[in-house]
Design a protein around this nucleic acid. Structure first.
Lengths: 218, 218
DNA sequence: CATCAATTTTAGAGTCATCTAAAAATTTGT
DNA sequence: ACAAATTTTTAGATGACTCTAAAATTGATG
């Protein structure tokens, strides 16, 4: 597997290819900042190698083997992110780029040892679940803060937008995973929210609320 | 810098290119298991980029910039080796391959943090010195065990051959860095040595003795 | 249902790193 | 010092990945 092939498979997985859904050539090209013609070429190659089903003009979907491969890459990426944050004091907005490189290191022993060193973490620094060695991958029970009803509380468990800009914004306002947020009021006009967090009240835009995942308190 | 360029620079350095010595095309090709014609192509490219001086038919030598670059790659390689052994329980015969991959990860912050995590080690698991962040690189005072006079003692400080086979052999006979070895007798016939280590006597071939570095006790 | 717009594929070309085979330069041995 | 052997370079080709431009297909609309 080349680095390029791994990146395609990962992208296709992220675009919903874990189900039998067909992912469009254009969507892949856009996500990877490449051209649709390059995607077509690679789609044929990856189909030949058994990673995906390619239906000309329709799109691609990952095979079981392709899904297994994608999960192994995602596992590596997320474990490295945890390592960077927990052992090397990287902040959550700095880890993505480096993990993009580290995820391509070929050594099963290495990643298993990293997993062990970190005591088998279940989630990465952005709250995304880490597939296990044997490909078990459970999405966490969560919803967008923007969809939390008024007067309810939730624990912050993840971010949808993982851009450095968004993460730095959250840092600035002390919003972090694990913190409890209560929705006090929703403005109909701009969908902004009044929230309460650690005793303090603040107002956040819909843009922010619709990129923060919370787990509703029961 | 591509991965391939980095590998060429590292190899040229190892072949003695840290001085103004000219390194032959053939030597590089042999070391890298590639063809001399490929080396010529790359030599031109690296010369264009300022990493080395290329004299057609004579060989190449690293520029100051090239040496600086080589030291940075070697630094990364050796720090990762220390990390693998000390933090992930790799044995010293397993680290090379993985470090060959990790040394190409591009992130200054990453390697500086790894350095810090390991408390700024001076030597890698094979006893080779680790260049500092600003390129200081001191060869240790050492000599081959095969050149140690009779009846003298030395501390094992490094290996010349870093092949997995040799390292496993040393493990088998409990020979490890830090141990003190006394040369009792040298057989003229085959240059094998009678040595004493931790109270036990054993006999080792010239092949072994000429691949083990010791620091003579004063 | 014919046409148009959008998407996708094909064809042809470029870059990077490599190779083989042949030519050129250097070194060696007598 | 000259021929032979060795080393190195050049020339031309290949494979992986990407691109642009043109052709083909799809599916949406009047």
């Amino acid at each position: 597997m080349t680095r390029s092939e791994e990146n395609y498979i990962k992208t296709i997985f992220h675009l919903g290819g874990n189900t039998a859904t067909l992912v469009a050539t254009n969507a892949i090209a856009e996500q990877m900042e490449t051209k649709p013609s390059s995607v077509t070429d690679m789609a044929k190659k990856l189909a030949d190698k058994g990673f995906l089903n390619y239906q000309p003009y329709q799109g691609v979907s990952l095979t079981d083997f392709g899904i297994k491969t994608a999960l192994s890459i995602i596992r590596k990426h997320r474990l490295w992110e945890v390592f960077l944050v927990r052992r090397l004091d990287f902040s959550w907005d700095e880890v993505h780029e480096v993990a993009e490189q580290l995820e391509h290191i070929k050594s099963e022993k290495l990643i298993d040892k990293i997993d062990e060193l970190l005591d088998f973490p279940k989630y990465d620094p952005h709250g995304d679940p880490i597939p296990t060695k044997d490909g078990v991958f459970l999405e966490r029970d969560k919803q967008l803060l923007s969809e939390l009803p008024i007067k309810t509380k939730g624990v912050c468990v993840g971010v949808k937008d993982t851009s450095s800009a968004f993460l730095k914004f959250l840092d600035k306002y002390n919003i972090a995973l694990g913190k409890t947020i209560e929705v006090l009021e929703r403005e109909d006009f701009d969908e902004s929210l009044h929230i309460k967090m650690e005793g303090k009240e603040l107002q956040i835009s819909h843009q922010i609320a619709s990129n923060l995942y919370v787990k509703k308190n029961d």
